[in-house]
Structures are given as C-alpha cells and as structure tokens.
Nucleic acid binder design. Structure first.
Lengths: 226, 226
DNA sequence: CTTTTATGAATGAAGG
DNA sequence: CCTTCATTCATAAAAG
C-alpha cells in the first residue's frame, strides 16, 4: 500500500523529470540542406548529427520513462482505492482520515466508488438486465466490500443505467446524422472529442484496464526508440 | 461540428484514443550512411527523409499526449483519494473528458445561438413547462433551422432552465446573493429529500493543483514538437 | 493569461 | 419501466 507521503515523493520526482525534459526542447532536430553535387547530381536531404539524433532519442526516452512511471503510480493508486473506497461512501468517515481531511464530509447522495462502478458496469454488460431482488442483494453484498452502499442504490443504479442506455441508442439513430466531418490532418491530436457509440460492448473492460496504456506497450516504444 | 451530445459516455474516448496511439507506426529514424565523395571527401551523416522526420515528431507528440492523459488521470484519482478534495472526488471516474488539445476540435458542449436561445426563452415563458417528448421534437426541429442542435440539448435546456428559475425564486428571500454554487447551507432547501440529509461541502478545492506535473509543461513539449 | 461566472450535461433518487 | 427533479461537475464565455 502506498500512502500519501510516498505519493508526494513520486510526484516530485516526476516534476524533476519534466523539467529536464523541458530543457531539452531546445535543440531538437533541424533540417539541413546538403548539396552533394557529385557527378552533377544534387541531393537535398534532412541531415542530423549524432548529437541531434541522440537528443531526439533522449527526448523520446524521457517520455517513455515518464509514461512508465505514471502508469506505475496509477496502478498503485488503483490498488489503494480498494482500501480507500469505503471513505467515499455516504455518511461514513474513518476517524483516521478525519485527521487529514478535517471536514467530516458526508453526502446526501450515494456516489459509487470507482471500484464499485467498475463492478456494476461489468455486471451490467454481462447482459442480465434483470436485477431481481436476490440479485440485488448479492450485488450489494459484493459492493459493500468496496464502500458504503445499499440495495436501493444498486436498484436505482440499474434502473437509471438501463433507461439512459436505451435513450442513448434511440437518440443516435434518428435525427442528426451529422457525424463528425472534422477530419483532422494530424492523427495524433485528432482526439474526436465527441463520443460516437452508445455503450461499450466490451464485457471484460474494466475501469482499471481501459484506463490506458499498459506498461508493456510503453516499454516497447521505448525499446524501439533506444 | 462536434456537437453530438446525446447521453453517451465519455470513457470510450479514451479507449479509442489509446488505440490510435498504439497504432502509431514506428518507423522512427534510421541511420543511413551517405557517401558523398565529392572532392575526394567522404561524408558520413545520418539522413532522414521528411517522412521519417514526421514520424519522429509524431512519436514524440504521442508521448506528450500520453503523459497529459496520465497526468489528468492522476489528478482525478488524487482528488478522489484526498478528503479535502472530496468535492472533486465526487467524479465518477471518468477521466480525461476532453483533456488535451483545446485548439482543434474543442467544441464539446452545445452552445445555443442567440436565435435559438431567443426561441427557447419564448417557449419557456409561454408557460408550458411540460416539454414532453413530442414537444421536444418539435422544438428541436424548429431550432435546427438556426443551428446545430439535438433533442437532448433541448431537453437539458428546459431541465436546467426550470431548475434554475426555481432556485432563483426561492433564493430571493434570504440574503444569499450566491447564484447557485453555494450548497453549503444547513437547511435552506429542505424539501423532503431525505431525513438523513446534511451536507457540508468544501468549496475550495485547489488541492488538485499542487499535484505535480502540470499539464502546461507537457503541453509545451507537444507544441514544440508539432 | 488567470479567475469567475453562466450554463450544458451527468446522474442519483423519487413518483407514477 | 418511464419521467421528472435536485444536485453536482465541467467548461465556454465573460471578467479581471
């Protein structure tokens, strides 16, 4: 388990890295024209010195490292959430925590913790849209391990989830077919800020996983570049 | 236009983006020896085509984006973890809603045109505070002649309009000049919500800021490289 | 450019 | 199940 202090430390580390990174921005690669008029032929290519090349590699590598670190941290954090989850429930506040967050904050409205939400979403995607009494009880029992929750909450959640899911579908088909004509040039920054599908079909998808890049992926990038 | 705000989830964006990122071809730069034996001299430099150069830049930019996303994620989770920032922690774990790139493709929220607003206002004043499905459709149809709009937009607009109108009314009595962001009163609006209601909210978040890596840092990198 | 405000949207809950 | 409401989040627009 990672406590808050450790987090701060990690963060500082990263801050440092970021700075380093910023300092590198100066001498990226530059285009140079080379006239190699040999045999009457003229070459015009981008040339980069070993130094520049190295700089570039460093730059990329730094990003790779940062990404790895962030992913790592995030994982730790996720793990910690299971412990912390209970604190997000309504009207419950661990006295231990109270010392940190002096405000005994409680809500009048239940808010699922990430973990709970993840589980709920998974169950929902599993298809069985029929949460009968028994099922509700089961789910509630499971979720209560990750935070304050009641059967009513679960019931409501499924009701709302279904209703809204349905409405979504409905709204997609008809009316505006104006689907995104933006067609950005850069595929990188092309972030399609608008959603386009109603609900994720992926059943195995969990918040923690879809959360993004896996370490391995980032690593591979790194390896390739270095 | 990127308007298309039905009841869709945001989490899916992220997933999509990640895939895109992962698809980035990785034919980074390669070292090529060029023998420009002109005047008896031998050159041995690294050469890269425009394409390769572009690829490299993209690669770096991709990392920048990834970092930004991760940073955003961390903010979310930090907020959730910290009780002082519980207000932010209320977030349902839907990170990176519109995180990066405010430049292009930024429109993620419908904004009524003056004409539309005027019409909406007029309808609202007409008294019929009951925008049923059919009504919504009609209105939407009419408004769509004056700009991009969806039924959801109309629906939301009326919802919000009514709610805020009501709040305003009841806010006349007390000397509270706060427009709507207060919520910390003791028992001002005890309608019938629940007997167990007691809310305390900390308006000062700002906890998120001291977090660490600033987006701006990463962003600057991105801009430089692209 | 940063802070504040106005408001579109998301969502838990209640009513029918 | 569906509709409606209340509350809160996030962001476009406005203010500083």
């Amino acid at each position: 388990m990672v406590n808050r202090m450790e987090w701060e430390k990690h963060h500082n580390h990263q801050q440092l890295q970021q700075q380093e990174l910023l300092q590198q921005k100066r001498d990226g690669l530059q285009s140079v024209n080379v006239n190699g008029n040999c045999a009457g032929m003229m070459m015009c290519v981008k040339v980069m010195t070993d130094e520049q090349l190295e700089t570039l590699r460093k730059q990329i590598a730094v990003y790779a490292v940062i990404c790895e670190r962030l992913v790592e941290l995030h994982k730790q954090f996720i793990a910690q959430q299971d412990f912390a989850g209970a604190r997000l429930g309504n009207m419950y506040c661990d006295p231990l925590i109270a010392s940190v967050g002096h405000k005994i904050t409680s809500r009048q409205r239940w808010t699922p913790t990430p973990v709970q939400l993840q589980i709920l979403e998974r169950i929902f995607d599993q298809g069985i849209g029929t949460p009968n009494k028994l099922k509700i009880k089961e789910i509630t029992a499971e979720l209560s391990q990750h935070g304050q929750i009641s059967e009513t909450n679960v019931y409501n959640w499924f009701q709302n989830r279904r209703a809204r899911s349905k409405r979504k579908q409905q709204n997609v088909g008809p009316s505006n077919a104006e689907s995104e004509v933006e067609t950005e040039g850069e595929s990188i920054k092309d972030k399609k800020t608008k959603p386009e599908e109603f609900q994720s079909q992926n059943s195995g998808n969990s918040r923690t996983e879809d959360l993004c890049l896996q370490n391995s992926e980032v690593s591979s990038e790194l390896h390739y570049l270095t």
